[in-house]
Computed example of a mutant assay.
Amino acid sequence: MKIIDLHIIKKYLGTFAFMLGLLTLIVLIIDVQAKAPRIESNGFSVTEFLIEFYPYWIVNLIITFMSILVFISVIFFTSRMANNTEIVAIISSGASFHRFARPYLITSTFIAGVALLLNHFVLPRANVKKNELEPYTYSAKSREEYIGNVEVAAQLSKTEYIFIKSYNQKERRGSGFMYQKFDKNRKLTYQIIANEFNWDDKKQHFVLNNYLEKTVRTNDTEKLGNGDVMTKAFGHPPEELFPGVLLGQNKTTPELISFIDREKEKGNANLGNYLNELHQRTSMPVSVIILTFLGLSLASQKKRGGLGANLAIGISLAFLFVFSFEALKVVSKNQTIPPLLAMWLPNLVFGPVALYLYFKRANQ
């Protein structure tokens, strides 16, 4: 039976590697052709992007579609084994269906373990490189949302706020800066207004130009001050103070957890994107095991229509699985559904289905 185990593991990994390589090649060619005009219009060459962007983009692609590729791979090679009566021969030799499924469990657990490691520690480092250049593959309007001028309203703590009329995310400078601090009764105690500001990366502080400072004393009198230049540090760089949508992707899991905890201490309740990112890093690898057994249950019995019918079913279920994840991300972004539940819901639905079909197939 060990020979058969190695045979199945080899088929599993071989088919998965082939599917992975084929998808990567096809998607890479299509993506480069589609984005080349935008890349070149932004002053870059396609060659630069092939070296400095696409290797990290491919890592993201592999992780995103890993569970789906596993599912289709299992259906593909298991259907071929069923059509060639290999599975009938194995079961007829005295092995139970549970014993036949053991190499599927071993291989899927191995892939899930690798995916967990990549998701929590490797992918965020790749995303840092990917996200630096990815805005230059977008349209001008979309690119502006990531590296252009935006309006900012940030909560630094339960009593401190920053408002910026126009902030350039790439250059880390802007205009219309206002910092306010309140007491526990929500009464303004301190305020700074500056016409312009910029972040000094070397000295790790903000430089405020043409500022007006106001301090409200306990007797409600005000002390006013102004000047040309003031330096002010708020404890973190702009990326942390004014976090964007992509910030969560760039942090390893320990860093992301620390960031979420810090934002909760500030009183920031708008953490749906970051919580989705955190919980998805574990739920997606677990789906590899679930979809492996779902694919095994669907494809291990020879049926009318053969490989084509099984692949059609597999691709349909894969599309449903991916669509449900993306739809739940949108719903949980504003925490209509708790992000933890949203990112685990597909597994909670597909898991019992896979378990039911597996035992049904095992008892036939």
Score class of each variant (00 low, 15 high):
72 I>W: 00
309 A>F: 14
353 V>G: 09
141 K>E: 15
28 L>I: 07
12 Y>S: 02
216 V>A: 03
151 E>V: 04
29 I>K: 02
349 V>L: 13
343 M>T: 04
227 G>V: 07
131 N>F: 10
112 A>Q: 08
26 I>E: 06
193 I>A: 08
234 F>A: 01
87 I>G: 08
52 E>D: 13
346 P>A: 08
119 N>T: 11
38 R>K: 13
77 F>K: 01
47 T>N: 11
238 P>K: 03
146 Y>M: 07
6 L>C: 01
144 E>I: 02
179 Y>R: 06
109 T>N: 10
115 A>W: 07
340 L>T: 05
271 L>K: 05
349 V>A: 08
223 K>W: 05
363 N>K: 15
248 G>R: 10
171 E>I: 08
356 Y>V: 15
98 H>R: 13
42 N>F: 04
290 I>E: 08
103 P>I: 08
353 V>I: 15
20 L>G: 10
362 A>D: 13
221 T>N: 11
5 D>F: 11
224 L>G: 01
272 G>T: 07
28 L>K: 02
168 N>V: 04
288 V>D: 04
235 G>K: 01
362 A>P: 06
48 E>V: 00
296 L>G: 10
274 Y>W: 14
187 K>R: 14
287 S>N: 02
260 I>A: 11
266 K>D: 03
324 S>H: 03
251 K>T: 02
12 Y>F: 15
290 I>Q: 06
247 L>W: 07
244 G>A: 12
222 E>M: 13
248 G>F: 12
43 G>H: 11
331 V>Y: 07
133 L>H: 10
42 N>Y: 13
287 S>W: 01
135 P>I: 04
77 F>M: 02
9 I>L: 12
95 A>E: 05
302 K>D: 10
186 R>H: 11
135 P>T: 06
306 G>E: 11
24 T>Q: 03
188 L>G: 05
240 E>K: 10
93 S>G: 14
174 G>M: 07
49 F>C: 06
354 A>C: 09
11 K>P: 01
203 K>H: 12
224 L>P: 01
91 I>V: 14
318 A>G: 14
334 N>Y: 11
123 L>R: 12
73 S>G: 02
137 T>W: 06
361 R>Y: 08
119 N>Y: 04
254 P>R: 06
42 N>C: 00
9 I>N: 01
182 F>L: 14
161 Y>D: 04
215 T>C: 01
31 D>Y: 12
19 M>K: 01
318 A>I: 06
61 L>G: 06
26 I>M: 14
265 E>R: 15
256 L>G: 04
276 N>V: 02
99 R>K: 15
233 A>W: 04
298 L>I: 15
276 N>K: 03
185 N>H: 13
313 I>F: 08
158 K>N: 07
307 L>G: 05
70 V>W: 00
228 D>I: 08
126 A>C: 12
245 V>D: 15
136 Y>A: 04
288 V>H: 03
146 Y>R: 09
190 Y>M: 08
197 F>R: 07
354 A>Y: 06
329 K>P: 02
228 D>W: 01
210 N>V: 01
